[in-house]
């Protein structure tokens, strides 16, 4: 087949082939970082979660003891942690949606200012926010002083800090900008004319939101929820600083295994249990969001 051979010899690299090489080159650095800093350590700890810690040494092998211990010893903190993270993610996603909706459709140029303000709080850092809540909710804190000044209470309230409520408030405050961003991004894709058209056909504002807006931003709702849920479920600083000492979250126990007890296999097993439980819960939430807000 001389003809074919000639074409092959004279053919310049097709734009398709060239772009494929470019794609590989562009993706390689990120891929290597991902492989080296995420997949490799995670795999290492996954293997280790089946090992066993004995006195001053770690014994490789395949034992399920660590996982059994997670369920016998730590199921309480695990459920509590999923519960708190679920609450935080739900509240944050709802607040984030309302905020993003107002910015996108109601507030005009004021909306952009508010959006920028919300994002600026991300610069402040995580610990700063926790300490801010300590000064707000503390016995000598702003809230107590204000309530006493107003004559609503005589003694400062002790119950504001060091409980699960304080953890939820602090995490919600920390995570809200992260919930706003994906939802706002998705709302920008929703044309205002669609809302006007729905109103024109007889839909109330709330009905238009349910029928037109929510079904279109389902992936973003799940993204916001997932982001907040995972960060809340894995957090151990907030519960340590503003939470109740007797009601620590799962992250505190994992940290304890790695630092105080030097039992990395147990810590790894606890981590993977938390990851698996979180993913399972997110699958359920994703399914529910998809069903509830589907186009009807």
């Amino acid at each position: 087949m001389p003809e074919n051979l000639a074409t092959k010899l004279t053919a310049t690299p097709s734009p398709d082939g060239r772009s494929r090489i470019a794609t590989i080159v562009l993706l390689l650095p990120a891929f290597l970082v991902f492989l080296g800093l995420f997949v490799a350590p995670l795999s290492f700890f996954f293997v280790q979660s089946f090992w066993k810690a004995s006195i001053f040494s770690i014994v490789p092998g395949f034992y399920l003891d660590n996982y059994i211990e997670v369920f016998t010893q730590y199921s309480g903190p695990l459920l509590r942690t999923l519960d708190i993270a679920f609450l935080v993610a739900t509240v944050t996603t709802i607040l984030g949606f309302l905020f993003a909706y107002a910015v996108r459709f109601s507030l005009g140029s004021l909306g952009n200012v508010l959006l920028l303000t919300a994002l600026t709080t991300l610069f402040g850092g995580y610990l700063v926010k926790i300490y801010a809540w300590l000064t707000i909710l503390g016995v000598d804190g702003i809230l107590n002083s204000a309530l006493i000044r107003l004559g609503l209470i005589r003694q400062p309230l002790q119950i504001l800090l060091y409980n699960t409520g304080a953890v939820v408030v602090t995490l919600t405050h920390y995570l809200l900008p992260l919930a706003i961003l994906p939802i706002y991004g998705a709302l920008r894709e929703v044309d205002e004319t669609e809302l006007a058209a729905a109103r024109d056909m007889g839909a109330s504002g709330g009905r238009a939101m349910r029928d037109i807006v929510l079904p279109q931003i389902r992936p973003a709702l799940l993204a916001s929820f997932g982001l907040c849920f995972l960060l809340a479920a894995g957090d151990y600083v907030t519960p340590a600083l503003v939470g109740s000492p007797g009601r620590a979250m799962f992250g505190n126990f994992i940290q304890e295994q790695f630092s105080l007890r030097m039992n990395t296999p147990e810590g790894a097993a606890m981590s993977f249990t938390l990851i698996a439980a979180s993913l399972a819960l997110l699958c359920v939430v994703g399914f529910v969001i998809n069903r509830v807000f589907r186009a009807r």
Binding site: D191, T193, E194, A197, D211, I212
Partner: peptide
């Protein structure tokens, strides 16, 4: 708009 006896066809349609 939802209580007016008018119907509108928008310039960029506003289809869902």
């Amino acid at each position: 708009p939802e209580r007016r006896p008018t119907g509108m066809v928008f310039q960029n349609y506003g289809l869902f």
